[in-house]
Design a protein around this nucleic acid. Structure first.
Lengths: 359, 359
DNA sequence: CATTGATATGAATCCTACG
DNA sequence: ACGTAGGATTCATATCAAT
């Protein structure tokens, strides 16, 4: 499949041409079906120009549901089994989207609130100012695996776990694409930082990202910047043209964060492997961090104290009076005159293996 | 109907006993259908006691839908035509609720995000920390009137229009109801300030508020404090007992804010009334704020310039080159050697009337 | 150049009482 | 129910002109 390209034409028909399980991530920003009525005047009497595009008009809520069911069903077919999908909407449509996605078997991982510090006010004072939009993030099925770059997101959030409410300004100023007369080209252009957060959190370097409602290409720009591939689908020829020239100018970053280095897992080496490599002896004595002797390693890789034979995890939990605990982080052995964490032995094993590979 | 009471028993059956159009406001905090998988452990190995109550168990998503359709349909029947309804939920159930409410003909006014500064973290680092819940606020039908205390909410928000994302801490500390052993009594007790904001914004003093999932009575406590009436429905006898004793202790406030004084409209005095009171003469000359003569008052309370005869609003808009404008804030007359806003004359009229009343 | 003030504008289900 | 007259209502930010 051709990557980093925009397919111009009808969204649903183009989606049907994709092979099964062919994309890693989907971001969809469909029409919201706003159902606005008449004109809205600003408080100074001027006309407010919101969304009055033809593409946002539907016959009824039922017609909107059918449309969404169709493209979401295709998205499910196209998505890889370990991929995930994001959709964005507002109160007018997000409950339709979420309901349909659950019915199709998508499994909701989070609903994310895009909180806008600078929303359009409610000019007439008739309701609360609508200052947010909602994104729904789903894996393909209930127990399907998915990519979540937890440590990267934590690092980017002052080393605090990232939450489900994101404060991001709306797309204005230089970022907003305008025509020669200064008029906005797309009525609902999303801020690129929103897309970057989506892509950064839930895809890997080199992944293929599909945006079935590409518009002026914010998803493509963010994907290129973060060293991912994209495919866009967009009906409007002008949008396609603008998106291409916009993405052309984007430079791809490459650093350890974007490469996902923070997400590399510690080595998973078993007690058995450590014994085979000679890093643990049979009947090795295990101590706690205060150098108290706790238990002895057995032949079948359990540990034994005076009362019981347990896994290293259950044994650690027993001494901490907890339900569960990671024994790798609890036990030490005495080696060459020093106490050494059993977890650190696993890094030693990794080194030995790498050494072998070089012979 | 008995007010300020809790009906103990099956929610749906009790709802069916209510007469049509009998309550002003509904707040519903239904079971969430969390579908948690087995036990959830904190990182230190302790068991996390989230929501695993019997009342949160449903056979399937379809069973949950049917249940919600049934109680929401009754709520629609019971709600007054100028009433409104709030429901609260999280990503597990809010899309079911919103979809069903739209299908039942409720008209969404806002979706409100309860953003928690102190959420339960995601212990396993598998997703974004779910740090919010969503409330949906609906009027009974598309064009139905509803109460929204806009100015009160603005006043309470540093005189800025209130938005759709509310930052409110979760219910902890002294506010959280606990049993003798210090264990929380209800697993999902809501913070009272959340309920106060709901009630303050969308009901009037003396209104009747229904909570079909009353729990330990947060809605009742907030209603009593803000001088509203409540009816609660709750199956669990222990919750009912605790709610009664809790609400007993609440003191009712009464000040101008709670009485809704900020929502009273300014005097509506017509041009005709001002003429009758002698505050405007026939053929009065109208000027703009820069003392330029614009137009003349006519017998039928329009104004006439050299080209046309229009309402004061249309005339003001014409000179400002706007679609619309409030003429009361645009025109001045020359009186006793000074230029006076025609709007200020209306306050003068009010004084005259009050003077008469004292004779 | 720095500061101040006026103006423009952004996914909007945006009035209501009365006849 | 529906049309119409009367009249109530805005926040944050970017840009640009003026000082």
């Amino acid at each position: 499949m051709q990557k980093d390209t925009i397919l111009q034409g009808n969204c649903l028909e183009i989606l049907k041409t994709f092979p099964e399980q062919s994309v890693d991530l989907i971001f969809a920003d469909p029409p919201y079906f706003m159902q606005t009525q008449g004109e809205l005047l600003r408080t100074n009497g001027e006309l407010f120009s919101g969304v009055s595009d033809e593409w946002d008009k539907f016959e009824s809520l039922q017609a909107y549901d059918s449309f969404c069911k169709a493209w979401l069903r295709e998205c499910k077919r196209i998505l890889k089994n370990n991929g995930s999908i994001w959709v964005i909407g507002s109160f007018q449509n997000i409950f339709r989207l979420g309901y349909i996605m659950q019915d199709l078997g998508f499994w909701i991982l989070n609903d994310i609130i895009w909180n806008k510090p600078n929303p359009v006010p409610n000019f007439k004072g008739t309701r609360f100012c609508n200052s947010h939009e909602t994104l729904i993030w789903c894996s393909k099925n209930k127990n399907a695996p998915y990519t979540f770059n937890y440590k990267t997101m934590k690092f980017l959030n002052n080393n605090k776990q990232e939450k489900s409410v994101w404060n991001i300004g709306i797309c204005i100023g230089n970022e907003r694409l305008k025509d020669a007369s200064g008029k906005k080209i797309h009525s609902t252009q999303k801020p690129q930082s929103l897309l970057e957060k989506v892509i950064m959190s839930s895809s890997k370097q080199g992944d293929l990202i599909l945006d079935p409602f590409f518009g002026t290409g914010t998803t493509g720009a963010a994907a290129k910047k973060l060293n991912r591939h994209f495919i866009g689908i967009e009906q409007n020829e002008l949008y396609v043209e603008i998106a291409y020239s916009r993405i052309e100018k984007v430079k791809t970053l490459s650093n350890e964060l974007i490469q996902g280095k923070l997400e590399t897992k510690p080595p998973r080496v078993s007690l058995e492997m450590l014994k085979c490599a000679g890093l643990l002896s049979e009947n090795e004595k295990f101590y706690d961090k205060n150098k108290n002797f706790i238990c002895t390693l057995t032949k079948n890789n359990k540990v034994k104290d005076k009362d019981a034979t347990l896994s290293i995890h259950k044994m650690a939990a027993k001494y901490l009076n907890k339900e569960n605990y990671n024994g790798w982080n609890y036990f030490y052995i005495f080696k060459n005159g020093d106490f050494v964490s059993i977890d650190s032995l696993r890094y030693g094993y990794e080194k030995l293996v790498n050494l072998k590979d070089t012979i």
